[in-house]
Structure formats: structure tokens, C-alpha cells
Design a protein around this nucleic acid. Structure first.
Length: 219
DNA sequence: ATGACGATTTACT
DNA sequence: GTAAATCGTCATA
């Protein structure tokens, strides 16, 4: 019996709308050895494609690395950055419309024991608080064992990674703010394309050169 | 072939 | 608060 998951229809909309619609959904990862790791999405960012200076597909750039962004909505785009980190996106809209939503933070729900183990190998110093397990795009990939081997998979079919409907937060609990770590993108860095659940302790800190504080905008 | 640069995280002053 | 870690990718030659 197939587990309930979000369908193609859900993903086939513009990245901005998809980004906020992803909040409250459950990201599920079934590991190689069959263990389930899952968390509720509490923070996302939209990347709008060729026009968006902050997007990997800015100017219509297409390469082996970002090829997955050109797939149909509902595929995964996993990239490697800073020589050591992975980040996972949900591809939005239709094929050849290279837009996507970066998953920035999760509230850990299932498989916490293993997540903590996955995340503790690094510091090997102090015990890791639950709020530090998945509060960041690279942190959650580390916790859920997501890497480039999962790049390009179909979230509507693949048994290794998918989204359950979960329960979206009420609109008044969704905050829009500037995206993190894209200061190089000029004006595009200021646009409120980051979405998070208000007051969630699992949201990433979100630092960025040139911006000490983020301006939160209620919608 | 070469060099600059990250959609980040962690540690440290 | 600042800086180091660390290497695949891409633009330039």
C-alpha cells in the first residue's frame, strides 16, 4: 500500500506560491537501509529562474549541475556547495521553467535518534539540541542523509524521498522576509522570497553579509 | 589549464 | 562580532 503523498498537481505552480504552500508539509526520507527520517517544513525560499539574479538558472544558465531545475515540478534538485554542504530544493512549475524552492528548515518528527547521530559526527563535542538538527538547508540534508545521489529524483514516485500533505499553517502565521546568503544578487537579495512559520524554534538563524537583521513582513 | 567563488556551518576572539 | 574549512563548478583563456 502506497503511502499518501503530494501529487504532481501540487507542484505545478510558480515558485513563489509553491514556497509558501510547502510550509507545514512533511519531508520524508527513507534511507538505504529502510529507516524513516521525517520533518515538518517550517522554512523555504523561492528561486524564480532566469530573471532572478540569486537563482542558479539566472540568465538562462543551464549546466550539468542545475539540470534538475529544468525538470517538471515535483522533482528534487540537490546541489553541493562550499566544498562540503548539500542543499535540497523542490522543483516548481513545469518542465523548462527552471524555478525551485529551497528547503531551509524542518521541525524534526521521526527518526530523531538517527538524525542526531548523522549530525553529531562533525563537532563531536557537546550534545546537539533538537533545534539544531534541521535548522538550516545543509543541516537538514546532513540529518536526512540527502546528497547528490538523490538529485533529479521524482518526489511523486521515488521511494527514497517524498512529501506527505501534513497540515499547512494558517496564513497569518506565515512570514515573508528577504532570502539568506544571496547578498551578491543586488536588488533581488532584498525581495521577500523567504517564507517561514512565525515563532517556530526550528527556523534557521539566517545570517547574510550586509544585512544584520531581516525585516519580517506579515502576509 | 587556471582561478574565483559560493542558495553554509562551525569555531573562535 | 569574524574567519576558516574545503572542493565542485563555471567563466575565462
Amino acid at each position: 500500500m502506497e503511502r499518501r503523498r503530494l501529487t504532481r498537481r501540487f507542484y505545478r505552480r510558480d515558485a513563489l506560491r509553491l514556497a509558501s504552500a510547502l510550509l507545514g508539509r512533511i519531508l520524508v526520507r527513507i534511507t538505504e537501509d529502510g529507516e524513516e527520517l521525517a520533518g515538518r517544513i517550517v522554512e523555504t525560499e523561492a528561486y524564480l529562474g532566469p530573471l532572478d539574479r540569486a537563482a542558479h538558472t539566472f540568465g538562462g544558465r543551464r549546466s550539468e549541475r542545475n539540470a534538475s531545475m529544468f525538470l517538471d515540478g515535483g522533482h528534487a534538485y540537490v546541489y553541493f556547495t562550499y566544498g562540503m554542504h548539500h542543499c535540497v530544493n523542490v522543483v516548481a512549475d513545469r518542465a523548462e521553467t527552471p524555478t525551485a524552492c529551497l528547503i531551509r528548515a524542518l521541525e524534526p518528527l521521526r527518526g530523531l535518534r538517527r538524525m542526531r547521530r548523522n549530525r553529531s559526527a562533525r563537532p563531536l563535542s557537546r550534545p546537539l539540541p533538537e533545534r539544531d538538527l534541521c535548522s538550516g538547508p545543509a543541516r537538514l540534508c546532513q540529518a536526512l542523509e540527502i546528497d547528490r545521489r538523490l538529485d533529479g529524483l521524482d518526489l511523486t514516485r521515488d521511494p527514497r524521498l517524498f512529501l506527505e500533505p501534513g497540515r499547512p499553517p494558517p496564513r497569518h502565521r506565515i512570514v515573508a522576509a528577504p532570502r539568506v546568503g544571496v547578498a551578491y544578487a543586488g536588488e533581488w537579495a532584498l525581495a521577500p522570497y523567504r517564507f517561514y512559520v512565525e515563532a517556530s524554534p526550528h527556523v534557521s538563524v539566517g545570517r547574510s553579509p550586509g544585512r544584520k537583521q531581516t525585516r519580517a513582513i506579515r502576509r
